[in-house]
């Protein structure tokens, strides 16, 4: 008679919290004692995905390390909006050095911690480096790759919003094809960003065969927390790439930030998976498959695709990219699949 497992919750595993779950099964963000590592009063835009993603990730890392955590931060929105003199929003030991060196600074921190611990002068403190896509996939890429190759004990978190938003929305190597930015205007025969070869840093991280690589979005908090927690349980170089929609750069409503991340995942535009030592170990399957148009249409950076005569061919090319992700990472919706 009982066809369904009884452990069904009104809201499943999708909400931040659930009164029906045992406390240890609840998300870090549901906890009244969460660290709020990135505190109120920061100057991020309304509905900032990066501010949200950073608190999600760092709170989870704090939780996983018993609050023994130091963060190194690349220059960028996250740094600028969190630490303008005389106030900082960070509640953890945090350092900002430069745009392109967060991974290396973190290596230095990890080295110092290791020596201090060896000498009996310090405890087991862990290190997170974080930056935006510009600081990660472009200017900080050398340091990132070096950190990976040495397998330094650092978790690097990239908050990917697909462009240099802090400087006024310019193109980065993470800017998706056809997207309008201040340096890829919707003009000429191929408006918006080029259809390049792409630079998907999670795949490059996997090529380093580091112990752990994962992608996540701000739309799947539990998945994100699971991955950060898992990463903090591993020694060596780890990389988590989090999609964080940017209302300013994407031209979306401030209240749609999480929705946009969800659409990116559900359309296959952004594959959500985890990999160990270069091999994909699990994926977050698509739950309600959608055409990419659903994702593109609400964003002003793609408005030129939906003018008087829709850019059908361009949309089809983007759909093909999503389809490829779905094939490659096996993201097809599955029965009962979370």
């Amino acid at each position: 008679m009982s066809l369904q497992p009884v452990k069904f919750y009104q809201t499943g595993t999708f909400t931040v919290g659930n009164r029906l779950l045992a406390p240890e099964e609840r998300s870090v963000q549901a906890n009244m004692q969460r660290t709020n590592s990135l505190n109120s009063g920061h100057r991020a835009c309304q509905g900032c995905g990066e501010a949200l993603g950073a608190r999600y990730a760092i709170d989870a890392a704090m939780n996983a390390t018993n609050r023994q955590l130091i963060a190194a931060n690349a220059t960028g929105c996250l740094e600028v909006f969190s630490t303008p003199y005389p106030e900082t929003s960070w509640q953890i030991p945090w350092i900002h050095s430069l745009f392109g060196n967060a991974a290396a600074v973190a290596t230095g921190i990890a080295a110092a911690i290791k020596v201090k611990k060896q000498k009996g002068q310090g405890g087991d403190v862990r290190v997170v480096a974080q930056g935006g896509d510009g600081g990660t996939t472009d200017i900080g890429f050398g340091c990132l790759s070096g950190m990976f190759e040495r397998n330094d004990d650092v978790l690097y978190i990239c908050y990917d919003n697909g462009g240099y938003m802090n400087t006024g929305v310019q193109r980065s190597s993470a800017t998706p094809p056809a997207a309008r930015t201040a340096t890829t205007m919707p003009l000429g025969p191929e408006p918006g960003n080029v259809f390049g070869q792409g630079k998907f840093v999670p795949a490059i991280a996997m090529a380093h065969e580091i112990p752990y690589v994962a992608t996540a979005t701000v739309a799947d908090l539990r998945d994100l927390e699971y991955k950060v927690t898992k990463a903090m349980g591993i020694r060596g170089a780890r990389y988590i790439h989090i999609l964080v929609p940017c209302p300013l750069g994407w031209g979306t409503a401030s209240h749609d930030t999480i929705r946009m991340a969800r659409l990116a995942k559900e359309t296959g535009i952004f594959p959500v998976f985890e990999a160990e030592y270069g091999e994909v170990k699990s994926v977050l399957a698509i739950r309600r498959p959608l055409p990419v148009e659903e994702y593109l249409r609400p964003q002003k950076r793609y408005a030129h695709l939906f003018g008087k005569s829709p850019a059908v061919a361009t949309i089809a090319r983007i759909q093909a990219l999503a389809d490829k992700n779905i094939r490659k990472y096996r993201l097809q919706a599955r029965q009962g699949g979370h």
């Binding site: 190194a72 050095s97 392109g100 060196n101 290596t107 230095g108 921190i109 080295a111 340091c143």
Partner: peptide
């Protein structure tokens, strides 16, 4: 660049 960056991290720690 990484050398000095690592140095910054370790010195700050």
């Amino acid at each position: 660049f990484a050398a000095m960056s690592v140095a910054i991290g370790s010195s700050a720690t």
